[in-house]
Amino acid sequence: MATALPTDFTNQVNYTDEVAEFPPEVIEEMKSHLKKYPPERKRSALIPILFIVQRERGYIDPPGVNFVAKFLDLTVTDVWETATFYTMFHFRPIGKYHIQICRTLSCKIMGEPEITEHICRKLGIRPGETTPDGKFTVSMVECLGSCGTAPMMQINFDYYENLTPEKVDQILDSLQ
């Protein structure tokens, strides 16, 4: 008999009929996005609403997708199709603080390798990994429009620029 793979071995997401629920104020926030587009063009609100789902649930999960499909009158496949195109959406849990280090040319020549090495050593993980306590995830990302203040990183939605190893220590130590 073949040995079963660990359940998280593949990137496949498990199918479920479960539909996520959100508090009324979150539903209101989603509706505020719908107002921006013509009534017959609800699909336009898909990306902004997926960001809300990700914020509320930690990542884009199947119940969240089921909810969005119902909310926007789309098929579940429509929602997956769009969501999986964009790098800012995650489909499995990530750390509370998502450290995104810019690896593109201007940052690279201004000291990115040293910064990346410092962060990875300090946290004991490699890019793409999450610390065991679930606090930090490190990713390498492409140019974030901060090349004049390189090297830089973005943690969640905040920019940190003109980085030095000392500055990185201060920033990471201040995150709880």
């Binding site: 921006k36 063009r41 699909r43 336009s44 609100a45 898909l46 990306i47 902004p48 997926l50 960001f51 926007l72 199709e81 769009t82 195109f85 964009y86 790098t87 800012m88 959406f89 990302v141 492409e142």
Partner: peptide
Amino acid sequence: HTGAGAYICGEETALLSSLEGYRG
């Protein structure tokens, strides 16, 4: 309106696809 991480969405027709809620 917000994108979600894709350089190609700067290309104007990809931008419009994205603004309509599709892949860019």
